[in-house]
């Protein structure tokens, strides 16, 4: 169904009253729509009717002469011939075919280019996705690293703490390895005398503290002994001043300190106990 507006455009087209753009639009519509083409033909018939209102006039013969001369000068290729009246002219068809081949070639090339571009876009998209993925991994790793750093610090602190605990434990262990022995008086003249021995088997050293021991005679010394079952006789740990006590180190390595004893010996001490035992551990 053609609208009145389209009919008006077609009417103006037939009378040559449209601009170039509108003229092209009407001609395109005629090409696309047979109904539109039929309408234009009807309107042309109506317009041409008006021409019949002009009375016929005989043109001067000079017009025919001029026309004759013009046609004589007219090159034949300016004329439009009907295909039925002329021999088949293959040249336009060949040119058209060539053009078609070229157009198809361009179209195929364009299609290929579009495929390449599409492939490129897909690859770029994949690469971008991969890049995004890598960036996310990098971020995650950085976070993990920071977390690990924090954990590392915590671990270091824990290790430090563990070291401290270990040192403490070692200290405790060291103390655990120290044998404390209380020596009671065996002497009748000093029953209140006391002595304490702290013995560290690892270092083979010990400390002696005394309390209430009377002073030894001028030619006498108190001597400390370590009784180890691995030795047949007590092992000398040295002479000492009963007023101060002091550190001691046995003359032989002590494997097991069963008891400690103090004897009153000649001045300078003895290799084996010679004098009376005045103090003995429990």
């Amino acid at each position: 169904m053609i609208s009145e507006q389209t009919e008006e455009q077609a009417s103006l087209y037939v009378l040559g009253m449209l601009g170039p753009e509108e003229t092209r639009q009407v001609e395109a519509a005629m090409e696309a729509d047979p109904e539109m083409a039929e309408l234009v033909h009807r309107l042309e018939c109506g317009a041409a009717a008006l021409a019949w209102t002009a009375p016929p006039l005989k043109p001067p013969p000079a017009v025919r002469r001029r026309l004759t001369t013009a046609i004589q000068r007219e090159p034949k290729d300016k004329r439009t011939e009907t295909p039925a009246e002329t021999a088949f002219n293959w040249l336009p068809w060949a040119i058209a075919a060539c053009l078609m081949v070229v157009v198809c070639g361009f179209a195929y090339k364009r299609y290929q280019n579009r495929l390449v571009i599409a492939d490129f876009i897909i690859r770029e998209h994949d690469q971008q996705a991969e890049l995004d993925r890598a960036q996310r991994q990098e971020t995650a790793l950085a976070n993990q690293l920071r977390a690990a750093g924090r954990e590392n610090g915590e671990l270091l602190a824990e290790v430090e703490q563990a070291h401290g605990q270990l040192a403490d434990l070692k200290a405790r262990n060291a103390l655990a390895g120290v044998k404390i022995a209380m020596l009671a008086s065996m002497a009748k003249n000093a029953p209140e005398a006391r002595a304490v021995v702290a013995w560290d088997g690892d270092s083979q050293q010990g400390i002696l503290k005394t309390d209430g021991m009377p002073a030894a005679g001028a030619d006498q010394d108190y001597q400390l002994w370590v009784i180890d079952p691995n030795y047949q006789t007590p092992v000398s740990a040295g002479v000492f001043n009963p007023a101060t006590g002091g550190n001691f180190a046995p003359v032989h390595r002590i494997m097991k300190a069963d008891k400690f004893a103090v004897s009153l010996e000649k001045k300078g001490g003895s290799e084996t106990p010679q004098g009376p035992i005045v103090m003995l551990s429990e």
Partner: peptide, 20 residues
Amino acid sequence: IKARIRRGLLRLGDALKGKL
């Protein structure tokens, strides 16, 4: 004017179809 031209040409065209 457009309407008059349209109607006039259509009526002429229809009236003279096949006669010119």
